[in-house]
Design a protein around this nucleic acid. Structure first.
Lengths: 187, 187
DNA sequence: AGTGTTTTTTGATTTAAATCAAATACGATT
DNA sequence: AATCGTATTTGATTTAAATCAAAAAACACT
């Protein structure tokens, strides 16, 4: 599903808006391990994953690589701490598979907001989705042990278990990969 | 600062929009420990904290009371898993101090969205703020030990330490109150 | 197929924080 | 001021998961 089809599936837009967005969007086929965003940079694009998989992560004080979340097909991803506020980001965003990514720049999006207010609504709806995901993960991590965290991902994101390395899953769940491997072995 | 003044401070609205919102908003003085929202109910209002303090929390599998976050003066709070999607919430929201709370219902807000599109933008900006807070907390919790979590709150929300009980702070940070008490004693 | 690289598993040990339990301090109310 | 209830601190013990280390398995490339 391309980005226009996806948007239409939950909030139909006028033809004019679709034309405008289509004209401004850029679609790219990117290889595995391509960096869409680097720490320290102001993120200038919001990405839509048409095909493939991305993850966003940061480097913590100990130099460890912590996966904050994944973006599967039909997800919007950006450096949420940077794109809107125009501040340097703490996040990296990278593809984990060969991916087809559509994106739009901050300026183009802002321009579209002004011209077509319905895009404000669209953006609001997408933000709500993202906020929900993030809160879900919060609940899953806080005061849940390693076993329960693993169950969270098997229930909510079983597809990821097939596609993502153990190390990335572990850091997403806030546990070490050794611990995750042992949990998996028990079943 | 009342809600209109606060909104005006970061996104000035037209007089018509202000009038509409003012007409639809309800302001209440509520005592400490008043429940604004109960688990299992569809949250029908978004709240603005003009004065006082609220927390939102949920009950986990073990029956423990987990503080997800606080809303200080000039914050918007709602059951984010419920208000927008019209689904039963897992959250409770309660006042922790005598508070002045302004709120608007879902239907009134939706109506205002339709009449005055600039409110869509306002809502989007508020959602971005909230998303940032939540992500910040994610980063603070994931792979940080109890000491570091405590530092997060002393740096980002020092005011809360004076106003909120140790137990609530501890559950917000994902640690037990005994552990938090010991950390505090060391300094 | 064979070699090198990365990922995952397994084992032994340590450690931070949870748990359990009790004492102390604090606050509100009469 | 005395009492009751709640919140916080302190202590002893247990435990889950991290760490350290190395082997095994999976994958990628020539």
């Amino acid at each position: 599903m391309n980005v226009i089809e996806y948007i239409n599936s939950f909030m139909p837009l006028s033809d004019e808006t679709v034309d405008e967005l289509s004209a401004k969007a850029r679609t790219q086929d990117l290889p595995k391990n391509f960096l869409l965003q680097k720490e320290g940079e102001i993120c200038n694009r919001t990405f839509y994953v048409e095909k493939g998989l991305v993850r966003w992560y940061y480097i913590n004080r100990d130099g460890k690589n912590i996966t904050d979340s994944f973006g599967v097909e039909n997800s919007f991803v950006t450096a949420f701490d940077s794109f809107f506020q125009r501040r340097p980001s703490r996040y990296f965003i990278e593809t984990l598979e060969d991916s087809t990514i559509t994106s739009i720049t901050y300026d183009d999006l802002e321009e579209t907001f002004e011209k077509f207010p319905e895009v404000q609504k669209l953006s609001r709806l997408i933000l709500i989705q993202i906020l929900e995901q993030v809160l879900d993960k919060n609940v899953a991590l806080q005061f849940h042990n390693a076993q329960e965290r693993y169950e969270f991902i098997t229930e909510k994101h079983p597809d990821l278990l097939q596609r993502v390395s153990l190390g990335h899953i572990a850091s997403f769940l806030g546990i070490t990969q050794e611990t995750l491997s042992r949990i998996r072995a028990k079943k």
